[in-house]
Design a protein around this nucleic acid. Structure first.
Lengths: 141, 141
DNA sequence: TTAAATGCAAACTATTTGCACGTAA
DNA sequence: TTACGTGCAAATAGTTTGCATTTAA
């Protein structure tokens, strides 16, 4: 695992942001970089403890909190009462399968320049926006 | 209260969908129709019990569940770990204030049908989509 | 060496559920 | 009359927190 970004790359990203490189943080961030399925805390915990127990649930929570604070990770809240995490911090949209709950990243240019911001009340100061597309994924038809 | 939709109108909507008209259901749906701020369960509870206690929290939960099942109400999940409710079931987008958490409905034609679906993988069967716009609202600048 | 991070368990918050009682139709 | 709804309290699920112990730098 941890194939997408090299070990030293992950270490650099953490260090650059003033974070200590602990095995737990490394495992959490490495795992997130390695997958695109927007896992929950439990899924991350299961993945990184698969071979040998390395982190507690509380540590995964705090690692994710800190990673989010420094901008390496973002939360994805869709439906259900679970928070999902994503190491893709570039702007993008999401597709959510109504059946299995799978989440798929969609390209940012899906929207292009089609947004007509003039229709938003001027009293609202817009800083970002993103699309949530719902439907059924390939495996659920 | 319950000014937007007339009392008999609310009764009809509930009856049409096979729902018994209980004071609790009536109050919950009437309150939701009367506001556009996407309240939480606690806010609805507080509002309908303001003058005289009429419903328990559990009843508000079950009323909302049933109202959602028959399509009179929808859930709005943004951030924070709270579910908000909306009696506006027409397609529309949302603005969320990053400071105070206020939610404002945005018109559907902000985006309309101008989504470039060709960029979505054909294996994904799209049934709906909506935009979440973030920023700062008038009161929070 | 030491400030920062971990692990555990307890605390919290939001929501769901089981069941006896009440009530709309 | 009776199937459906309510209220309460207990149960769950997700997340946060306090604190003693460990550890990265």
């Amino acid at each position: 695992m941890v194939s997408k970004a090299v070990v030293s790359d992950i270490r650099d990203r953490l260090k650059t942001r003033g974070l200590r490189i602990t095995p737990q943080r490394f495992a959490v961030y490495g795992n997130l970089l390695d997958r695109t399925d927007h896992p929950t805390v439990d899924q991350i915990l299961e993945a990184i403890n698969e071979e040998l127990p390395i982190a507690s649930k509380a540590s995964v929570y705090t690692a994710l909190t800190v990673l989010r604070e420094v901008g390496l990770v973002r939360e994805v809240l869709l439906d259900e009462g679970v928070t999902r995490y994503d190491a893709n911090v570039q702007p993008h949209h999401h597709f959510v399968c109504a059946d299995c709950g799978a989440i798929v990243d969609l390209p940012w240019n899906l929207l292009g320049d089609r947004l007509d911001l003039s229709q938003i009340p001027p009293s609202l100061d817009v800083t970002s926006y993103e699309l949530t597309v719902r439907g059924r994924c390939g495996g659920c038809e």
